[in-house]
């Protein structure tokens, strides 16, 4: 790990302004992903801004009837929240499908959104990676590469990494918004469907956040009701990243919403696919995954996604 200096801040606006002032600074809260990457020198901040004292650790009702989730609320506390498990069940299910008990106690809501990909080539500093070291190439697309876990849609010739979060897939299906404060002290709201950028030629730029911009909360609209479920398919029964995951909200008339995890650089949802839900899993996936470009190793994810949704729909 490279040496770094360290400071604590007590207010969100102070965090953002310090991050803009100090070159090479990064925020740290739970630190479960950042420290892992710092040990491998994939992340090399020279200054850490500890934001855990900024007081953003509560969940409150919004005037509109939704929920405002502070950026520092832990994954455990969010999943266990009474209103979340009663009215936004897909979010509790997604959170509990991810990581381990120890990690969920430390991991925060904003940190979960901002976690980096688990692509093995991003993690291997002996290999090229356009996300870690722009312009070096994508080892995941090289001869004999291991791409079974990686993306099948929304990817580019520069990067086929997926976003690893389960939580974000549920937030996408719930139409969440991300609240931030900029270094200038202004607040802004970014819908989650505009938060994650597709890689294109610049896979190192992952979100719509500007330098120094600090996430203060995630906002959920009023509950949408329906039957909510999150089904995660992975190589072992617990504590593994998704091959494919499906977040589903289904109303009694058969309409609803679907988002996929494990297949793209962002939680993957399309309005035309939602609209096809009454027509079944194949109708949904032929719209949601239309134009996919899998590798030979991960083409199975297309059929797996369809069958996962079909199984969920069959359960009612």
């Amino acid at each position: 790990m490279r040496a770094f200096s360290y400071e604590r801040v007590s207010a969100p606006a102070q965090a953002a302004s310090r991050a803009a002032e100090v070159p090479g600074a990064k925020f740290i809260a739970g630190g479960t992903n950042l420290l892992d990457l710092m040990k491998l020198e994939i992340e090399t901040p020279v200054h850490l801004i500890d934001v855990s004292g900024t007081g953003l650790d509560s969940i409150s009702d919004t005037r509109e009837g939704g929920l405002r989730i502070g950026a520092l609320v832990s994954n455990t506390d969010l999943a266990a929240n009474e209103r979340v498990r009663r009215e936004y069940g897909v979010l509790t299910r997604a959170l509990m499908a991810g990581a381990s008990g120890q990690l969920r106690n430390k991991a925060t809501t904003a940190g979960n959104l901002l976690q980096r990909t688990r692509c093995p080539y991003f993690y291997d500093t002996a290999m090229p990676c356009n996300k870690r070291a722009p312009g070096t190439g994508c080892a995941a697309l090289g001869q004999g590469a291991f791409s079974r876990q990686l993306g099948i849609i929304g990817t580019s010739d520069a990067c086929i990494a997926t976003h690893p979060s389960d939580m974000a897939v549920a937030l996408r299906v719930l139409d969440a918004e991300v609240e931030t404060v900029t270094p200038a002290g202004a607040s802004r709201t970014i819908p989650l469907d505009e938060f994650y950028r597709l890689p294109g030629d610049t896979p190192e730029i992952e979100t719509a956040l500007m330098p120094g911009e600090f996430i203060t909360a995630v906002k959920l609209p009023p509950p949408v009701g329906g039957r909510q479920a999150y089904y995660k398919v992975r190589d072992r029964a617990s504590y593994a990243f998704a091959l494919v995951s499906v977040a589903l909200v289904r109303q009694s008339d058969g309409s609803g919403r679907v988002a996929l995890g494990g297949v793209a650089p962002q939680p993957w949802r399309r309005a035309q696919a939602d609209a096809a839900l009454p027509d079944g899993a194949n109708a949904v996936m032929s719209r949601l995954l239309d134009g996919a470009s899998p590798t030979e190793e991960n083409a199975f994810k297309i059929q797996l996604a369809e069958r996962t949704l079909a199984g969920m729909l069959a359960e009612g």
């Binding site: 190439g137 590469a145 990817t155 010739d157 996936m285 239309d290 134009g291 470009s293 590798t295």
Partner: peptide, 10 residues
Amino acid sequence: PIRFEMRRRT
């Protein structure tokens, strides 16, 4: 079938 095109190695 769901339409897709296998990605070529780069």
